[in-house]
């Protein structure tokens, strides 16, 4: 009985706790990483006062946010205002329950056989947090930010979905673990046959996470701070954390679907066996780190699109291209099997 309890309650809870803690810490340190990297690109030094080389900066930030006064706008909708941060942080963290960090079952919480659908479904809930938070703030700028974000997320969800379907066609499974295994069996990462899908997925991913050059909802120069203008203290911290967590989600999904998850490059070429010194988890984290670096690199380089241009890009370019790409990939997958 106690063994059962341990297997079905204890271990999962432990795993959840570890991943949750690691994730929150990662998201916090991602902000440090971003500030530091951005600073280096901008020929300055970035945070370097709190702790050695600024290592304790995220902790100091968190402490500051904890002790800050928690303001609620006077004429705002109080309950919805409270609901906003909850609705955005929960899905962002929930997604990690299905992301496989490595091959061993200890390295993921669960392997759902509809993993991809789960990720897409749960991460779309986050938009409620943004739109409700923006609306409940009773601030015109927040409202505009929230509306922009809603429109943006909905329109980019579609091409993103189609590019994910491309992967599903190649892997013939919805389970994230199976997708990685399929890449091992194919001997090649899906980025090579599906580079168009990968490109679309990543562009949509940036748009989904509201990052530069698609960071319109929080466009500082237009909308002050967008949907979280009125938020302060820990509520703001949740929005902040969710943004970084979402970045990690998109990067992890891109890693799993296109860069072979925990696999080393060319997993079937024996000559490259020496690469196995890096454990699977290491490979996974390396790839995620690469994506995060690209995220920040983009932020350091590009101006921001305008709202209508962003929608135009989503509907007029990415959607048709992803559809055509899906057809082409499906054709070539079906061709060798004589199914065409």
């Amino acid at each position: 009985m106690s063994e059962l309890l341990w297997t079905y309650v204890g271990i999962p809870l432990l795993k959840i706790l570890v991943i949750l803690l690691a994730l929150v810490l990662l998201a916090a340190y991602l902000s440090w990483f971003e500030r530091k990297l951005l600073a280096y690109m901008q020929i300055r030094l970035g945070p370097n006062r709190v702790g050695p080389r600024g290592w304790l900066q995220p902790i100091a930030d968190a402490l500051k946010l904890f002790v800050k006064e928690d303001l609620t706008p006077g004429f705002g909708e109080k309950f919805v205002f409270l609901l906003g941060p909850v609705l955005i942080i929960v899905p962002a963290l929930l997604v990690f329950s299905v992301i496989p960090f490595g091959p061993s079952p200890n390295l993921f919480i669960t392997d759902v056989n509809i993993g991809v659908l789960f990720v897409l479904a749960v991460s779309s809930i986050g938009v409620y947090g943004i739109i409700l938070g923006g609306w409940a703030s009773n601030n015109k700028f927040s409202l505009m930010g929230g509306l922009r974000s809603a429109a943006q997320l909905i329109s980019y969800e579609v091409p993103m979905g189609f590019s994910v379907v491309t992967v599903l066609v190649m892997a013939e499974s919805l389970s994230l673990v199976r997708i990685v295994e399929a890449q091992r069996e194919a001997g090649v990462w899906f980025i090579f046959p599906g580079f168009v899908a990968f490109f679309i997925y990543f562009v949509c991913g940036i748009a989904e996470t509201n990052r530069n050059p698609f960071d319109l909802p929080e466009a500082e120069s237009e909308l002050v701070a967008g949907y979280h203008t009125e938020y302060s203290g820990m509520k703001f911290a949740f929005y902040f954390l969710a943004e970084y967590a979402n970045m990690v989600v998109v990067s992890s999904m891109a890693t799993v679907m296109f860069l072979g998850g925990w696999l080393r490059p060319f997993p079937n070429v024996a000559a490259l066996n020496f690469l196995d010194v890096v454990p699977p988890l290491g490979w996974f984290l390396l790839k995620v780190a690469f994506f995060l670096f690209v995220y920040i690199w983009f932020r350091g380089t590009f101006p921001r699109y305008r709202f209508d241009q962003l929608m135009g890009l989503g509907w007029k370019v990415l959607l048709p291209v992803s559809l055509v790409n899906l057809l082409v990939v499906a054709y070539f997958v079906a061709l060798p099997r004589g199914q065409v």
């Binding site: 951005l38 690109m41 901008q42 020929i43 300055r44 530069n212 050059p213 960071d215 466009a219 120069s221 932020r299 350091g300 380089t301 590009f302 101006p303 921001r304």
Partner: peptide
Amino acid sequence: HALDIGAVTPFFYTFQ
């Protein structure tokens, strides 16, 4: 101007 349009980095290069 670049900052308003969303490009942060030119700000630092130019101010140098």
